[in-house]
C-alpha cells in the first residue's frame, strides 16, 4: 500500500510498472492514478460515505486481486516499480528535493 500527500505541482501522477518495466496488462487499462483520477481520504474516516470533505492525502493499494478504493492491478508480477511524475512543480519542490514529502510504501499481509 502506498500512502502520500498531494505534491506541490500543477499536475502529478503515479504509474505502476511490472518487472519488465512496461505497463501491466489489465482489463480496465488502469496503469496509474493522477491528480484528476485519485480518490482522496475523506475527512470523516469513520463515516466516509457521508463525508463531503476530503483531505490532501491518498492511499493506493497495489495487488493482484481487486481492492476497494484506489487500486492498481499488479498481475502476477513479484517485482514492481512505481514512478511519481510532477509537472510544473513549484519552486519549493526544486529547492527542497532532498526533503520533500515522498510517499510511503508498506507491505500489507
Amino acid at each position: 500500500m502506498l500512502t502520500g500527500v498531494v505534491p506541490d505541482a500543477r499536475y502529478w501522477s503515479y504509474t505502476l510498472y511490472g518487472a519488465d518495466d512496461y505497463l501491466i496488462p489489465n482489463q480496465d487499462q488502469r496503469y496509474g492514478y493522477n491528480a484528476a483520477t485519485m480518490d482522496y481520504v475523506p475527512r470523516d474516516t469513520l463515516n466516509p460515505e457521508a463525508s463531503d470533505q476530503w483531505i490532501d492525502q491518498y492511499q493506493i493499494k497495489i495487488s493482484a486481486d481487486q481492492q476497494e478504493g484506489n487500486w492498481l492491478p499488479a498481475g502476477n508480477n513479484k517485482a514492481l516499480s512505481i514512478t511519481l511524475r510532477l509537472y510544473n512543480a513549484s519552486p519549493t519542490v526544486y529547492e527542497n528535493l532532498a526533503t520533500i514529502a515522498l510517499p510511503e510504501i508498506i507491505k500489507v499481509n
Binding site: 504509474t15 512496461y22 505497463l23 514512478t83
Partner: peptide, 15 residues
C-alpha cells in the same frame, strides 16, 4: 497515450 502494448521504450508514460 500508451497502453500495455507499448514496447518502444521502457517505462512508457501513459500521461
Amino acid at each position: 497515450a500508451p497502453d500495455e502494448n507499448a514496447k518502444l521504450v521502457v517505462k512508457p508514460n501513459p500521461d
